[in-house]
Each structure stands twice: as structure tokens, then as C-alpha cells.
Design a binder for these strands. Structure first.
Lengths: 204, 204, 204, 204
DNA sequence: TATGAATGAGTCTTCATTCAT
DNA sequence: TATGAATGAAGACTCATTCAT
């Protein structure tokens, strides 16, 4: 009962526009996404879009921000339950959560991730990596003996990108993927778990 | 079977256009690459470009084909020497070759790979994967006892994409990367080697 | 005949809007002046602006009217003192008053004058010219012998426009004017005085 | 016979576009002048306009350049004949030439001059002032005794602007001007001549 | 009466592709 | 065959004005 009707309407409009942007990106791809169509799908005029977003880029940034927040939620929700488990179980749990997130129906996640290099995803990535670091740090506290902790920055980079982009590629495959989703998860799990448990590499 | 002068001239023009396309993509990015500029850099007119390529997309496809061939050469050149070595040495060797290939100065490789989803990259990828499969098969013949051979398709997918996209991300990092190139290679090597040597995953 | 509170409020709002319009024009120029910004600076909503002014043009007209009145005041205040003096002294006095008026800090005078052709300036100019005519007529009454009185309409037109636009151009000069303000006044004075004292032109 | 057909066509197109721009500016004013309409009137598409002009501003600049050249021609053609004459005759001759130039039928001269402050007329004005200076210098060489030569910069500024803007205002008057064109010329002539022959002003 | 969110026509500019020469 | 001028659809963004609340 706090917010004024006006603020509510504004927020609704902002949300509707971000939603519409996401839908159009998901449906047509980042290249074919136009401000006029976003406004139309949101049920308003272009002018209204520009009342709430300085330009196309700002709308995209808002969409990215929202997705980043959602991703943070996913990680935070999944992590606590998994910290108790052994490494492989934890990794598998995180991978499943990530895969579900990327694959969420009608979501623009995949298309945006595909276009990471054209977007200002610095923030999004930074937040995600912070989340990951915290999970890892927490995990290490209870599994010190089990893991190599050298070269953490590079390890995190390698694991994160390997997992994310391999999933992205898999989810971008045409109708009939060459193998089942479960296989993907298991192979990635095996790779990550064996990696983190392996002897230190020569560069250490 | 010798080509006529006309055919030679055609081939020269086709090559020049593909070269020009690659240079412009490397310099300006896929988004800013225009047919008129490609023709100009190749020293011919747009009209001529359309004489040899049905449209912009066809030109891009030709560029991709050429790069795929080059990549095949790289693998084929590197592979024989590495088949004798132990797994880790072989993996490291392949990774170094791949990294050099991606990072080759002035080349459009990175920019094209960043935009894989916007290109008709199916063929290119297919060819590359065939190459990889052959290398792996050859390796297996001499190291049967050492490796798990189950689920080869998925394993190959996971390894290839993990390696390629992690390198892509690393090479796309701003000026000061967070860690050294050598670290990247060592960590990827460790990951891949430990993965391929690990016990079979549950999904087998 | 005292105005009701409502009328007072109206008048205040009208004044505030005209003020705001003047400030924004002075600061950003006629091209960048928008109704929304005017309303915002006046502390009201656009809707209110349109309650008191039929459209943007009407607001501009009101601003012009006000400035015309102010100019009239300037002339009327300066004139009596100058009617006693000799021609050159009077001219110089009027020129100084005009220059000060045009150059008044933060005022939209210059910007509006620069855009005289885009505004409905007929009324403003008419009023100003009436003022000038009265001054001249008054002057003539006491200096009959001194001046040629033929062709007054054209003379007035020539003098007024020469003076006003030359000043306008001078005040619109970039940072470092090519000569001093005092020189401008003296040269204009010399021109006008010698003109008005000269023998009749052939066309009389 | 030197220029290739292609160059001829280009020049024709450039000319046609500049012509069209001038016509539309003359007819509708600087505010309502759009690139699409210019192209249409020139009988081509917008795309062609942008093949020859980087943007709208560049087209305007080209139009201004052309008018500046024409003005230079006018002055150079009129000046030699007038240098022999007495001051008043010379001034009258120049004024008539200027008035004819400004008033040339269907020309955009007036509209552009009205908008001097919104255009990059620095070049145009500079060239014109150089022309004027040469005429004046030449005149002084043969009439040394007759004229005051102090404060030339300011004098030139005052005379030029007085004449140009007074004419501009006169030609911008609605259908029925308040007095005849001949009267304007005579009064301006009288003003300028008497000014240039008058005793030095106090500021000298 | 006041508000200010919503409207949408109007403008500039780009670029893949065509076709007359 | 080669040329490159011409095309024109498409898309981002602005702002005076309206009208539901």
C-alpha cells in the first residue's frame, strides 16, 4: 500500500518493456530486435519506451540486469544445499541448476549469452563470478584436504567458461541433439570433478 | 585439367575477396563489415563481388570454409608428431596449436568464432569435428588401455567446446588478462587430461 | 477590480512559465527549447502549460510581448533625458540603452532577436517602432531646423534595423570580438548622426 | 572532352541536389527542409543524396559555398566599374548589386541569411568580408583625401551588417512594403556615404 | 484544475542488392 | 564481364500535444 499508483504503473511499464524485449530477443534473435516491436509487444508506443529507457542499449542493459539477478538467485538457492555434499554431487547439482536456468522456456538467456561479446555483460559476469567464488570458498572451508587451491583465478575461469559455453552450444543445437541432456551433465560433471581433484599442473 | 586464364582470374578474384572480407572483419568486427568495403579493399567493384558470391552470406560462408581448411591443416600437421607422446603432452600440443591458430595476428578467427551462432557454421564445425575424431581414433589405437572409450561423441563435444570457447573468452579479454597465457594452457591441459583419464561417469 | 485569488494564481503561473521559457531559450537556444522542460523549470506540469497557452507558439508570443514592453520601458525611460541634448548625444544615449538591453545577462533577448523571422514578431516590432516614432517626433519638435524630416518612415526603418542587427551580430561574435564595445557604439553613433544631419538624398 | 561521363554525371547530381536544397529552403524555409524531399525534388533517392553528401549539414555547407562563390562574382563584377566613381555613386552601385543578389528569384539567399546564426557561415562571411576589404582598399588608393581611414575594421563591420541586415529585413517584409525599394537604396546610400565622409568619431 | 504518462508522426541515416552502361 | 551509381526499405529516436485520472 506504499507505492503510489503512478509508481506502480511505471514499474509495470518498465517490467512489461523488459519482458517484451526478452520475448522478442528469444524469438527473433538479438539482430532483429527493434524498439518499435518491443513497444508494440508491450502494448505501448515507442515514445513510452523512450520515456523509461534512454535508448535501445539501456533497455538491453536493464534486461541483462534482471537476468543477472535471477542467476544470482539460482546460485544462492542451489548452493547451500550442495555445500554438504561431496564434490561430484555438488558440481552436478550446480550444473543442473545452470542448465535449467539457461534453458528456461521462452527466455532470452541463450540468445543473450550467444552475444556476450556485443553486450556490456561485464557487470553480469562480474556478479556471477563473485557468486561462484563464494560458493567455491565456502566449499573449500569444509573440504580443504580434498582440493588443490592453487591458481584459483585461472581455474575458476576455465571451469566457468567451459561449462557455460559447452551448455550454450548444446542448447543451441538443432532439434535432434547428438546425445542426451543427461549425458552432457554427466560428462561435464566428470570433467570438472576430476579436474578439481587432480594433481597440480606444472605451471603452479 | 589446367585451369584456363579466365578461371585463374576468377579464382584470384574470389581469393582476393575472401581475403578482404577476413581483413575487414578482423579490423572492424562482423557488424561493421559491408560488401562495398570488401570489394574496395579487394580492388574490385561491388558488382564483381556479386558476380562470384550470391550474397553477403555466401561470401561469409566461403571465408568460413577457408578457415576450416586451415584449421584442418593445423590439426593434421600437429597430430602425427603428438600421437607418439603421452596424453598430457599431446593435449598440450594440440591446445598450443589451437591457441596460436585462434590468435593469429590480423586474422578474423576470433571475431568469427565469437559470432558462430550468426553464421552457417555447421559445415565448418562438422569438418573440424571430423578432424578431431580422426586424431582421437588414431590416438586410441596406440593407447587403448589408458583411456575410457565410452560415450565418445559427448566427450568430444564437451572437450572441444570447453577448450575452444574458454580460449575464445581468454583472447577476448581486455588489455590486461587476469592471468598468463601459459597458465591458461596448463589449466586446460590439466582439465582435459584428467578428464580423459578418469573413471567412466555414471551415465555410461 | 481586485483580482480574485484564482486569477492571481493564474497570473503567477503565466509569469512563471514565461520566465522559464526565457531562461531556457537563453541557455539552450530556440531550437532546443521544449514545452516539457519549460513546465518543469516553472515547477508545474506540461498539462498546466497548455491550460494557459494554446501551444508552444502562444507561449513564445507571450514572451515576446513581455520583452517588447520592457523595451518600451527602456526607451521611455531613456528618452526624456535625451531630448534636451544634441543629436549625437541623444543617439549615443539610445544606443547604449539598447546595447545594455540586448546584452542583459541571462536574458533571451539575443536568441529571440536572432530568430526574429521564425517568430510572430510583427506585433513586437510594431510596438517598438511606435515607441521610436514618438521619440523622434518629440525630438523634431525641439530641433526642427537641425534635421531633414522627409521620408521619415524609410529613415526610421534603416536606422532601427542597422543599429539593432549590427549590435546583434556584434554580441553574437565568438569570445574575442574584433574590436571594443565602445568602438561599436561610437561608430554607430557617428553613422546615425551624420546620416540624420546629412543633406536630403536624391529620392526625396 | 576531358571529364569522363561518370564524373559529369556525378557533378550533375551534386548540382541537382544543391539546386533542390536551395529551392526547398527558399520555398519552405530552413526548418522544413528534409533530406528525403531534397532527393525527391532532385529526382533521385535519399540514398543517392548520401552518396554525395556525408549528411544534411554537408549539403547545406555545399549550398552555402556555392552562394558564397556567386556573391564573390557579384562583387568582383560590380567593383571595377565603380572604383572610378565618386563615393556615393559607388556605394549606390554596390547596394544595388547586393540587393539584386539577395532578392534573386526563387533563391534561398534570404532564408539562409535569416538563419546565419544556425549555419556555419564563418567561411562565407570571411570571403565576403575579404572581398569588401579589397574593394575598400582599392577605393582608398584613388580617394585618399576624401575619406577617414581610421578604425577600418569596426567601420567595415558596421557598414556591412547595417546594409545587409536592413536589406534582409526589407526583403522579408510582407507583400506590401511600407516604402519603395528605391527609397531603401537611397536612404542606405545616404547613410553610408555621409558616414564614411564624416569627421572621425571620438573613439579614434 | 492539475498532472504527466502516452501517443505516433516525422526525421536522419545505412547498406545489401540491382542493373544500365 | 566489370562497373559503381542508384535504390529504398528499415530502424533509432524526438517532442508537441492530448486526456484519463
Amino acid at each position: 500500500m506504499r507505492k503510489t499508483p503512478v509508481q506502480q504503473r511505471s514499474q509495470q511499464m518498465v517490467d512489461a518493456l523488459i519482458d517484451a524485449a526478452g520475448q522478442i530477443i528469444a524469438k527473433k534473435g538479438l539482430d532483429r530486435f527493434t524498439t518499435v516491436e518491443v513497444a508494440a509487444r508491450a502494448g505501448v508506443s515507442v515514445g513510452s519506451l523512450y520515456q523509461y529507457f534512454a535508448n535501445k542499449e539501456a533497455l538491453l542493459a536493464a534486461l541483462l540486469d534482471r537476468l543477472t539477478d535471477q542467476l544470482g538467485d539460482v546460485v544462492n538457492r542451489a548452493a547451500p544445499l550442495l555445500l554438504q555434499a561431496d564434490l561430484e554431487t555438488m558440481v552436478r547439482g550446480l550444473l543442473l541448476a545452470a542448465l535449467d536456468f539457461l534453458d528456461s522456456d521462452k527466455g532470452p538467456h541463450l540468445e543473450l549469452l550467444r552475444n556476450w561479446h556485443r553486450l556490456d555483460i561485464a557487470r553480469a559476469l562480474h556478479l556471477f563470478e563473485q557468486n561462484m567464488m563464494e560458493v567455491i570458498r565456502a566449499y573449500l572451508l569444509t573440504h580443504t584436504a580434498e582440493l588443490r587451491v592453487d591458481n584459483v583465478l585461472a581455474k575458476q575461469f576455465v571451469v566457468t567458461n567451459s561449462v557455460v559455453f559447452t551448455m550454450l552450444r548444446y542448447l543451441s543445437l538443432p532439434r535432434q541433439p547428438m546425445f542426451a541432456r543427461e549425458q552432457l551433465v554427466e560428462e561435464l560433471t566428470a570433467m570438472v570433478a576430476s579436474y578439481l581433484q587432480s594433481a597440480p599442473s606444472r605451471a603452479d
